[in-house]
Design a protein around this nucleic acid. Structure first.
Length: 254
DNA sequence: ATGGCTCGTGTAACGAGA
């Protein structure tokens, strides 16, 4: 079972690349973030023609998340039920006995901004939500764009980013709070040392210069962690023409 | 020190992303 996540920064623009990547990598499940399209605009037929089902939670202009799957998608839940949020950032479903929770976490802009307060409330809600999900589903994967670089290894220039948005001690604690629920950072379990960046700024040739952040993650429940065989970032699509600023991340389970 | 690029919106700049 191969499960992947990719922030596509507009599915309208990136659909051909997503379809190419599905053919190349043949994941069982791919979850997407930043669809930037309304519910009725989702290209369901394009995925169906490639043999994939889909469930999605769309929104005009911003946000939007989707689950693409080769296998039947069951018990779909859009949003976190206990957190009233106009922004479409969460969709969950069960596939082959695994609870899949796809998240586009809040960016936060800057640590003194209103958006940072929203980010704080949002992560508190996510922690409570995941506590309930984990109590109900032994095999759970929480994956997506977390907009947090968990440690200095995940940052190309830790001193430059220290205390800044995505890297502040408070945000890193929010990420740790999720791990404290029993979740494991699958990429770091497989590869403890190499940076494995997942995002590079479009500006200043940051990808070519290998200057990025690791902010997209795949977190696994204990029952799923023992099944983990592989975890990796596929940097190739970041080098394609007209790329997303994020690269896909995937994990393989036995 | 600032902005750098790429989106959507709407058809010009501007907000947002990270």
């Amino acid at each position: 079972m191969k499960i992947a996540t990719w922030n596509v920064n507009s599915l309208k623009v990136r659909l051909p690349q997503v379809l190419d990547w599905l053919k190349q990598q043949s994941p069982d499940v791919l979850v997407l973030q930043e669809l930037k399209l309304e519910h009725h605009q989702f290209p369901e037929e394009a995925f169906r023609n490639e043999g994939f089902q889909a469930a999605w939670n769309g929104q005009k202009t911003y946000n939007g998340v989707a689950i693409i799957s080769k296998h039947p998608i069951e018990d779909v839940q859009a949003d976190m039920p206990a957190f009233a949020d106009e922004q479409k950032r969460v969709i969950a479903a069960s596939i082959n006995g695994i609870r899949i929770v796809d998240v586009y976490c809040v960016n936060g802009e800057a640590i003194d901004s209103d958006k940072y307060i929203y980010k704080q409330h949002w992560f508190t809600a996510l922690q409570h939500y995941m506590q309930q999900v984990l109590a109900q589903h032994e095999n759970t994967v929480l994956l997506g764009d977390f907009n947090i670089a968990p440690t200095d290894i995940d940052v190309y220039d830790p001193e430059k980013w220290r205390g800044k948005i995505l890297c502040s001690a408070a945000e890193r604690q929010w990420f740790q709070n999720l791990l404290d629920l029993g979740l494991t950072d699958s990429l770091r379990l497989i590869n403890p040392d190499a940076p494995n960046f997942t995002w590079w700024d479009y500006r200043m040739n940051m990808f070519r210069r290998k200057l990025g952040l690791r902010i997209d993650h795949i977190l696994t429940s204990p029952a799923l962690t023992v099944r983990l065989k592989e975890a990796a970032v596929d940097t190739a699509p970041r080098g394609w023409e007209r790329p997303s600023d994020h690269a896909p991340v995937y994990a393989v389970f036995g």
